[in-house]
Amino acid sequence: MMESRLIQAGRAKVRVYETGAGTPLLFLHGTHGILPNDSFLAALAQRYRVYAPCLPGYEDSDDAGALREMLDFTLHGLDLIEALGLRRPFLVGHSLGGMIAAEMAAVAANDIDRLALIAPHGLWLDSHPVPDLFAALPFDLPGLFFHDVALGTRLLTDGLDLEDPKFLADFMVTRARRLGTAGKILFAIPDRGFAERAYRVKAKTVVVWGEADRMMPPAYGEAYLRLLPAARLVRVPAAGHMVTHEQPDVVVAALAALD
């Protein structure tokens, strides 16, 4: 079990997991939150002191009704750095968290000097429409999120019975809290204008993408690179949107190149 605590970050009280030793790293998780026995956090912990907050709506973090739009979430991310007493942590965001991390690096360009964006949301390409996560059925998720669907099914539903009404009722509440909150920046089109603010980013940046990402097709990696021309794009074979959990060591190695 990782140690964790509740902290007040700006207008939201959130749970923060802390693990590992090394230079400080703030990790903002994706739409799926932090998994039980999270293998990506474990891989990060080999090299960094990892601070992994649960975003509002996840686990027992507040639902934070006062966070309504992109700026609120961006400031919440900066409030987390402040509340944790961190100085220029390595900022790493995956999926939903990557969208927030990119915005933080644009808004507070002088405070974020190292940035890793792992399959971040935040752009829209008409040629590659992002699947509608909000209309997905529970059993669609492993296929949307993982290259290895069997692994995904095990990680997302291990020990759970999708036919059990009690599980479904809890699932509905968890999903409503998580995606209800995430939906404030992802619904209905997960683009809140980062492309127009990207020019402000000063951080040394790596963009990491699973080559088999069906949720955020790899074309979005190219699009991020066009907006952040100084960044490096690392394509990871045999990995989907949850590249963090399918190839954790490859992702950590890509991050380490910024050290």
Binding site: F134, A135, A176, G180, K184
Partner: peptide
């Protein structure tokens, strides 16, 4: 299509916890 009945966040958590709507929908 069932997911269209209930975008996550549309109903309050309190209402979902009351259970009636989910059960009826199912």
């Amino acid at each position: 299509y069932p997911p269209f009945f209930d975008a996550p966040g549309y109903r309050t958590v309190k209402t979902l916890q009351a259970g009636m709507i989910t059960q009826l929908t199912q």
